[in-house]
Nucleic acid binder design. Sequence first.
DNA 1: ATCGCTAACTTGCATAGCAAGGTATCATGC
DNA 2: GCATGATACCTTGCTATGCAAGTTAGCGAT
Lengths: 91, 91
Amino acid sequence: MLALLSQQDSYAYELASRLAADVGMGEGTIYPLMRRLQSDGLVRTYLVESTSGPPRKYYKLTPAGRSAYTAQKAEWLGFVDSINAALREPR
Amino acid sequence: MLALLSQQDSYAYELASRLAADVGMGEGTIYPLMRRLQSDGLVRTYLVESTSGPPRKYYKLTPAGRSAYTAQKAEWLGFVDSINAALREPR
DNA sequence: ATCGCTAACTTGCATAGCAAGGTATCATGC
DNA sequence: GCATGATACCTTGCTATGCAAGTTAGCGAT
């Protein structure tokens, strides 16, 4: 989520569509997550009118969100390395 | 877990030590997980006496465990690719 | 008017992870 | 012979998470 928002502001429905395609994550996961990010101060929101339906609630990373992204990205990469090491390790 | 066991049979305490170091996973996570794997038929157990404490309950992959490992490994690699694509994507 | 798409959100249930605590075995030191 | 510390097993209780399913509403086209 933070990665996607670091690239460009977006709204939950769009993020949900994208993540549904990529990793099988649905709206029921996204909306509560966005709330959590907001209450943690990592994102802020603004409304934008749409011609194709109700107004969209865009999410934008805050400075705290950006540094959380940096930290979590590093943590993720380390985690993946550990797992991949275990997967590779022949024996 | 399945990856580690695909390399060699092991017991929960040892797995816990290793995973604690690698990914910060503790006994409270491991023991229930091993039970789950067993009741799902992915591992079977056998006891081995130890000179340095109580007998060790070794876990060994079943054929079903081995194929679950193959499937989950593929799923994991796909998942990681998706996430990494999102992390890379410059904007 | 109603259908279908966009877009927001909630509810309820099941699962997972973890810290903390509990029990038993064995070797070593006192 | 008994206390300590390491090994090794396991459970309990709480919290967080994910998801399917359902809800509401705006908008355009049939």
